[in-house]
Simulated assay, not measured.
Amino acid sequence: MNGYGEANLLLAAEAGIRAPSLHNSQPWQFRLRDGAIEILADPTRHLSVADRSGWAARLACGAATYNARLALAVHGRPAEVHLRPNAGEPDLVARLTPERERPPTSAEQNLHAAIPRRHSNRAPFSPDPVPADTRIRLIEAARAESAWLDLLVGMTALTGFAEIADSADRVLRRDNRYQAELISWTHAGYAPDGVPVSAGAPLAEPQDLLPQRTFGDRRRTPGRDYEPEPLIAILGVPGDRPVDQITAGQALQKVLLTATDAGLAASMISQPIEVPAARDQLRRSLGRSGYPQLALRIGYGTPGRTLPRRDVTDVLLPPAEGDAP
């Protein structure tokens, strides 16, 4: 493998599969090639209704890329990263080539240790506010990956976002094909992908500020409402090309791991991004010239479980013809 052990590249792939993805569809593949690891979008796992443009798959593959980067760094060989390195292979998202040895930083070690603990937490969070210094850490995490993170402050901003999110959610609920696809990725028992009913939020109630996807029919504890004033963050990047969406995925994962390392929980709100008119309305409400890529709900939650993943051997592609053994 050109001087770098295949075992360490496999560890990078194992970290990569812990990334988040829409409906836990896990739309990625990995290839070990000439001493490097490549991350590819898997067209067979494309959500044809919810992700017509491929935005969500590129975001997920970007997040997987960031995890793989961390794994290489903590094993002493940080990677040179090339996004979309081959125009003739559009599914090739990134190539990570290990560079010179150096000790990992404490920040890299902490974020890498957060990978197996990070998961989407759809249950109500406690009313305890996220401290100002932690909010700054989240903003800086996005900025370090060439993205921006806007934290909505005050009920005026929250109510405006909620109206946009609710409107988008209603559009998606009226789409029978969208709902059928969502149901196809929902299951009652154990599966290596998709979302188990037990991981879904309790059924929404009329007083709720934010929409929730329906993964089951579980009701919440009487008297337990969702947060009246949650911390909502909007992640965005300056452009909206495929490479920009991959960049956003890397920033997303760094923000999520930073939140996990700080003892916070998070869940993702994608409805305002999935509906083009809602996304444009959200962009204008932020006063940003860039493009929002995802909304996050962040706070202190009760511990939960990570969703299952396919085995790394199921997502490894064979070497391309002519590759070095």
Results as ranks from 00 to 15, higher is better:
Leu96Arg: 14
Tyr226Gly: 06
Val237Ile: 13
Ala56Arg: 08
Val255Gln: 11
Leu296Gln: 06
Arg309Thr: 11
Trp148Glu: 15
Ala248Cys: 13
Ala71Lys: 05
Pro318Met: 04
Gly304Arg: 14
Asn2Gln: 03
Arg297Ile: 02
Pro116Gln: 11
Thr313His: 09
Glu145Ile: 14
Asp240Phe: 06
Glu274Asp: 00
Asn176Lys: 15
Pro98Arg: 01
Ala13Trp: 04
Val255Tyr: 08
Val237Asp: 11
Arg137Leu: 14
His46Ile: 05
Leu257Asn: 11
Gln109Cys: 15
Arg170Ile: 13
Pro276Met: 03
Leu47Met: 03
Pro319Phe: 09
Arg69Lys: 05
Val171Met: 14
Gly216Ala: 06
Leu294Thr: 12
Trp55Cys: 07
Gln207Glu: 15
Ile234Gly: 09
Asp193Tyr: 10
His112Cys: 09
Leu282Gln: 06
Ile269Trp: 05
Asp128Cys: 10
Glu145Ala: 15
Asp314Pro: 04
Ala68Lys: 05
Asp314Tyr: 00
Arg173Gly: 04
Arg122Val: 08
Tyr4Asp: 02
Ser184Lys: 07
Ile17Phe: 04
Leu231Tyr: 00
Glu140Ile: 00
Met268Ala: 01
Asn2Thr: 03
Leu252Met: 07
Tyr66Ile: 05
Pro103Trp: 08
Gly35Val: 09
Arg135Cys: 07
Leu92Asn: 00
Ser270Cys: 06
Val243Ser: 10
Ser120Gln: 07
Ala63Cys: 08
Ala12Gly: 00
Gln212Thr: 08
Val74Ala: 12
Pro242Arg: 12
Glu14Leu: 04
Thr306Trp: 02
Arg309Val: 13
Thr65Glu: 06
Ser289Glu: 04
